[in-house]
Design a binder for these strands. Structure first.
Lengths: 252, 252
DNA sequence: CGAGCTCTTGACACCAATCAATCCGGGTGG
DNA sequence: CCACCCGGATTGATTGGTGTCAAGAGCTCG
C-alpha cells in the first residue's frame, strides 16, 4: 500500500513532470512521517489519502492563494519554491518566508480565518493541498497527526528568529544562506550546492535589507572564499565559516 | 460547577491575592472559552480541571522556565506580566515577547521539545500550568480544545509582524503601544490607560531599538499630544493618531 | 538623606538606504 | 548568427536614521 519513497529531484534540475491525476500518497508531504510511522489502521490512512489533493503545477509567478481570501486549506510543497508576501496599507510588500519541498504554507491563516498574505510560486511548483477542517477532524482520531500539526506550527514560530533579531546585514545574509542549506539538507537535497530561485530583491526584502546591500555582501562572502556564486547558483564552500558569521542568529 | 466570571483586576492596581490551593476553573485561562461554550460532557471538563495547575505567585524577576529545560507544559497568564527572552551564544539577550493575562507562554517549545527561551515575570504573576502531553491527549477528545490550541499557535505566528517588518523606530513604538492597548482591551482591561511594567530597556530590546531611541520617541509622541506618559503609567490620548503612525505595521 | 538604579537629553559616529551609473544575461527580432 | 533590448544584478558616492558614548535628572528604596 505505501508507495516506495520517490527519488528527490535535484534542486538544480528541471522541475518534476506532472505525474497524472491519480491521487497517491507522497512521502514529500509533510504528514507522511506521522502516518507511516505510527502504524495507523487502514481506515485512517485511507482518510488521509482521500483528503490529500495534489495541485499544480503552478508556473513561476502564479498565486496559490491571496491575502484576505477565506482560509480553506494548507499547502505542503512537493516540489518547487514559494514565497509568502504581506502587503501593508501603503502597498509596501514584505516577504514573510520561502518554503521548500516538504514545508507547509498557510498555517498563519488558521487564527484570522483568512490568509494574511499572498503565496507566490518562484519556480514551477507542485503542492499537496489539505482541507484544514478535514485534516483537523482527522487529527482528532490520529494523535500522531495532531502532534505533527502542533510541531509544524511551533517550528514555524521558531523560524522567525532570523527576521526578529536585530542583526547586522552580514549576519543576516550568512544566516539566510546557512538556514537554506540546512533546510534543503533536511529534505534530502544537497546542503551545499543550491539554486537561489528567488530574485535578489526577494532575498533583500525578506531580510529587510536593500538589494544593493545583499549584493555587496554576497560579493564580500565570495571574496572571503566562503561561498561560490554565479548568478543564482550558490555553493557553500565553508559551512562552518558561514555559521560563524551567523552565530548570533539564534538557532531554533 | 462553572464558577462565575471573576472580576478582572485593574492592571494598575496591586496584583491579585493568592486564592489558595483549591484548583478552580478560571475563565482567564485561555482554554475556558473552548470548553464552556462547547457544552462538553462532564468527564472531559473534569479532565481539564484536573490537568490545570494553578502556580504562583511569582515575584517580579523570577524565572518561570529557562532556556534548554525540557518542555513539559505551557503557561496561561492569569494575572501579571511575563517576558520571554532568548540569549544568543555571545550572551546578547533578545526579548521575544510580552504576555498579558489570558495569553499563553511556551508554545514555541513544542517543536524543539525544550524551551528555546527564558520566561521571566515582570510583576507579581499567577499562571495556569497545563501539562502539554495531557492537554494534547485531551484535545484529541475535545475538538474545540484542539481547535483552540491550533488558533493560539497560529495567532502567535501572526504576532511576529511587529518585529519582523522593517519599520522606522517611531512606527515600531506606536505599533507597540497600540498593540498593547488592544490586547489589554481584548482581555477586558482598559485599552487606553495602562501600566508599562517592563523597563524601557526591555521595550527597546523587544523593538530592536536602543533604549535612548525609545525614550526620545516617547517624548516626541507626548509632545505631539498622542500619549500622556508619567514614568511607567501610560495613557493613549489619540488612539487613531497612534494607529496612523503604526499603519504600516501589518495588523494580524 | 544618600545610594543606585532607571530614564532622559545631547553630541557624534557609523552602518545601511538611497541615488545613480554601469554591467551582465537572456530573450527577441532582424 | 549577431545586434539589440530590457530587467536583474553589481558597483560607486552620498545621505540620513539610529546606535553609541557621555552626562545629567528623576525615582525608589533602604
Amino acid at each position: 500500500m505505501p508507495t516506495p519513497r520517490p527519488q528527490r529531484p535535484d534542486p538544480r534540475a528541471n522541475p518534476i513532470a506532472d505525474d497524472g491525476t491519480e491521487v497517491r500518497f507522497c512521502s514529500t508531504c509533510a504528514f507522511s512521517g506521522a502516518c507511516i510511522d505510527a502504524g495507523y489502521d487502514k481506515i485512517a490512512l485511507r482518510d488521509l489519502h482521500v483528503l490529500v489533493e495534489h495541485v499544480g503545477p503552478f508556473r513561476a509567478g502564479e498565486h496559490v492563494f491571496r491575502s484576505r481570501e477565506p482560509f480553506k486549506a494548507i499547502y505542503a510543497v512537493r516540489a518547487g519554491l514559494v514565497k509568502t508576501v504581506a502587503v501593508d496599507p501603503e502597498g509596501n510588500e514584505q516577504v514573510l518566508g520561502f518554503y521548500l519541498p516538504g514545508e507547509v504554507v498557510g498555517l498563519n491563516a488558521i487564527y484570522p480565518e483568512h490568509y494574511p498574505c499572498d503565496a507566490v510560486t518562484l519556480e514551477t511548483t507542485h503542492f499537496c493541498r489539505f482541507s484544514f477542517p478535514a485534516i483537523s477532524a482527522l487529527a482528532a482520531r490520529m494523535p500522531g497527526l495532531q502532534q505533527q500539526l502542533f510541531r509544524l506550527l511551533s517550528k514555524e514560530l521558531g523560524m522567525t528568529s532570523l527576521l526578529a533579531g536585530d542583526h547586522a546585514a552580514e549576519e543576516r545574509v550568512a544566516a539566510f544562506v546557512t538556514d537554506l542549506g540546512e533546510r534543503l539538507a533536511a529534505q534530502g537535497f544537497s546542503g551545499t550546492r543550491l539554486r537561489l530561485s528567488m530574485s535578489r530583491l526577494d532575498i533583500a526584502n525578506y531580510l529587510r535589507l536593500a538589494a544593493e546591500t545583499v549584493s555587496r555582501i554576497f560579493t564580500r562572502l565570495r571574496d572571503q572564499g566562503l561561498i561560490a556564486l554565479e548568478g543564482r547558483d550558490l555553493e557553500i564552500l565553508d559551512p562552518s565559516g558561514l555559521r560563524a558569521l551567523a552565530r548570533n542568529v539564534r538557532d531554533r
